[in-house]
Amino acid sequence: MISRLRPYAVKLLLALSSIVLTVGLLEGGTRLVGISPQPERFQLTPLLGWQWTPGYDQSEAYKGTQFRMTVNQQGLRAPATDHNYAIPKPPGTLRVLALGDSVVASPGVPWDETFVAQLEAELQRDFSARTVEVINAGTDDYSTEQERIWLQEKGLAFAPDLVILHVYLNDSRSFGAPTPRVAQITNFLAQHSAVYALVRQVQIANQVAQEDFRFRYMPALEAGEWRTDTAVLTELIQTADRDWGLAWYDQAQRTVEENVLQIQQLTAAQGIPLLMVLFPVNVQLYAEVDTPLGLTTPQQEFALFAGQHDLPVLDLLPVLEAVPDDDLFFDQVHIKPVGHAPIARAIAHALRENQLLPGDER
């Protein structure tokens, strides 16, 4: 019996050896032409789809502006990769969780200039007898559904005294998540394989082409005719229906509201106050005309929803309109450093005004 199996075993061994040799040659050849594994900003996760890669530390450029992106070992944007937040929370610590997508992560803005860091400094002045921590829990392209999952599965472990939910107009978008095995293999290859790095370059090029449909409104946005032409403004909003234009659709609005309600329930169950902060699209700030769709319809809908559910809300549109600078945005959503200080002050004011801070312990 053994003698009969021996030829098959030899063939299997030869096949495996051939595969290993081929992979080795491909890997070596790819490295010889100058391609090597590159640090990945994100890693796959079956829970959330993607998340920041712990320990990521790179100098990056966003819209021509250099900044350093550092992610701590807990997968949060932080001042340094070793700037982690103690669990359990140390006594005497006032901890605020800033939950959101890239508007919170703040690409293009150095850490000290982000509104999260400036809010921390503002609150530290109010609570000089305590250690104040404002945790940046913003992840690029997250929806309110992902933010809800992150809060439930990870965020509450930080024992925040307050949660600030930052909402942008495309937060109803759905997401896909890999299986645990796919996530594990992909993350390993991203860290160790030059061939994977080459495949990623091709994949990113294809992804850019796919994203062209989502951002097909960009030529009209950059042309700027929407500033003074009602018809062009209306068409622009409708063309952005895979991005921020979603907020003008009832179903998308209801999707966000459902997740916000669940976030409110999660925080209320823990006795944690919640503030919702609304980020506008630049079109709402700079359009000189209105549209039959209603230029501020999303904010009005959120205000109505918040009032019905006793949820404090801060609309940043009037805050940014009051900033004497007509160049506040890197793009349609992300705000330059000049806009972060007024945002931090406005959030601090909203926290005080709504009595969301532990005033008896100042």
Rank of each mutant, 00 (worst) to 15 (best):
M1P: 11
I2G: 15
R4G: 00
R6C: 08
A9W: 13
A15I: 03
A15L: 14
S17Q: 05
S17Y: 01
I19A: 15
L21G: 05
L21V: 15
T22N: 01
L25D: 04
L26R: 07
V33S: 12
P37M: 09
P37Y: 09
F42N: 04
L44E: 10
T45L: 03
G49N: 05
G49T: 04
Y56C: 03
D57K: 02
A61S: 15
Q66P: 09
Q66G: 11
F67N: 01
M69P: 04
N72P: 13
D82T: 15
N84T: 11
Y85V: 14
Y85K: 06
A86V: 10
R95W: 05
G100P: 02
P110D: 06
W111K: 06
W111H: 14
V116S: 08
V116G: 05
A117E: 09
A121K: 15
E122H: 10
E122N: 13
L123M: 00
D126F: 05
D126L: 12
S128T: 11
R130E: 11
V132G: 08
V134H: 10
N136D: 11
A137S: 08
A137N: 13
G138H: 10
D140K: 11
D141A: 15
T144Y: 01
Q146C: 01
E153Y: 08
L156N: 08
F158Q: 08
P160T: 05
D161W: 06
I164F: 12
L165C: 11
L169C: 00
N170S: 15
D171F: 06
S174E: 13
A183D: 07
Q184S: 11
Q184M: 12
I185D: 00
F188D: 09
Q191G: 04
Q191T: 12
H192T: 15
A197D: 10
R200G: 09
R200K: 14
Q201H: 12
V202K: 13
V208R: 14
A209R: 13
Q210C: 08
E211D: 15
D212F: 09
F215K: 04
Y217I: 00
Y217H: 01
L221H: 07
W226S: 00
R227G: 01
D229G: 00
T230F: 00
V232S: 04
T234D: 02
T234E: 01
L236A: 00
Q238E: 08
T239I: 00
A240G: 07
D241C: 01
R242K: 13
A247T: 04
W248N: 04
Y249W: 07
R254V: 12
L261I: 07
L261R: 14
Q265S: 14
L266H: 06
A269G: 06
Q270G: 07
L274A: 05
V277T: 12
L278M: 14
N282C: 10
L285C: 10
A287G: 06
A287N: 12
E288A: 10
D290W: 02
L295S: 00
T297F: 04
Q299S: 14
E301H: 12
E301N: 13
L304Y: 11
Q308V: 03
D310C: 03
D310G: 02
L311F: 07
P312S: 05
L320G: 11
A322Q: 12
D326M: 06
F330R: 08
F330N: 03
Q332I: 05
V333F: 08
H334K: 09
V338S: 06
H340T: 01
I343E: 09
A344Y: 01
R345P: 00
I347M: 10
I347G: 03
I347P: 01
L351R: 01
R352E: 09
N354T: 04
L357E: 08
P358Y: 02
G359A: 15
